[in-house]
């Protein structure tokens, strides 16, 4: 049976892992390769390296960081933040990314999704959607949550899947950094609308929040950052908690 995936997000700026609260007020949390190694030993299923400020600052993904992680950690690795062209994606893939995550660039140029899928296969294309409940619907925001695109998250997820996205990385702006739990209503709405896997993100504060997003939220995977960064053995303990709750997860022996 397919396991629910637990994904650690390394929000990276200038080669260091940081974690924002509502995309602002960044705090230091560690060296990306060291964190990746620790998470891998504890049984994390996948890593996302995200340049949290790249879109605003128009900087490209840090190939050196990706290389350092990919050299010794052999689990799926996605890279996002400021990937706006095939050339940006090439650089990330060449550095060792298995998947590229695109957000604002996909909204501005939706054909980029299909172009990337044609180049690397759909399995390599993650469309990241930042959404917020507003005026009775889930509105899609661009540029690190600062610009309301006027689009509906469910409708945009459907379009992304049709255009060749392999997965949807869905972040609740309302919950991001709050530790109040994932937005299960948002996650379920998108997961029910598309046939590709949906990764829920934003709001993880307790292990029960993961149970909720895998049951009520019908997520295929859940992504978090700070809940893993600051506690020893958080990944292993989380998986044990999920297994006890009857959720299928990959356990790593000896960790």
């Amino acid at each position: 049976m397919l396991s629910k995936r637990i994904i650690a997000c390394l929000d990276v700026r200038n080669g260091h892992v940081v974690k924002g609260v509502h995309f602002e007020g960044l705090r230091e949390a560690g060296d990306p390769a060291a964190l990746a190694r620790r998470y891998n030993e504890e049984g994390i299923d996948e890593l996302v390296i995200l340049d949290v400020t790249a879109t605003l600052e128009k900087r490209r993904t840090m190939a050196a960081t990706v290389r350092a992680v990919a050299r010794e950690v052999f689990i799926p690795l996605a890279v996002g933040g400021g990937i706006a062209s095939l050339e940006d994606a090439d650089a990330a893939v060449e550095a060792g990314a298995d998947k590229v995550s695109i957000n604002t660039a996909a909204l501005m140029t939706p054909s980029l999704i299909g172009d990337l899928a044609a180049r690397y296969g759909s399995q390599a294309v993650v469309v990241a959607i930042d959404a917020q409940w507003r005026d009775g619907r889930f509105a899609v925001y661009a540029k690190s949550g600062t610009v309301d695109t006027g689009r509906d998250a469910v409708e945009w997820a459907r379009e992304a899947a049709t255009r060749g996205a392999g997965e949807i990385l869905l972040t609740s702006i309302d919950r991001d950094g709050t530790r109040q739990g994932f937005d299960c209503a948002l996650t379920a709405a998108v997961a029910d609308a598309v046939s590709i896997p949906v990764i829920a993100s934003g709001g993880a504060g307790s292990f029960d929040h993961f149970v909720a997003v895998f049951t009520e939220g019908r997520a295929d995977a859940a992504l978090a950052a700070s809940i893993f960064h600051y506690a020893e053995h958080a990944v292993r303990d989380l998986k044990q908690h999920l297994a006890m709750a009857g959720i299928s997860v990959r356990m790593v022996l000896g960790s």
Binding site: M1, L2, S3, K4, R5, D45, S122, Q123, G166, E167, S195, I196, P197, D220, A221, R250
Partner: peptide, 11 residues
């Protein structure tokens, strides 16, 4: 009712 493609860790 399973999602295709099959993406993730499995036994």
């Amino acid at each position: 009712r399973v999602k295709i493609p099959h993406v993730g860790w499995n036994s």
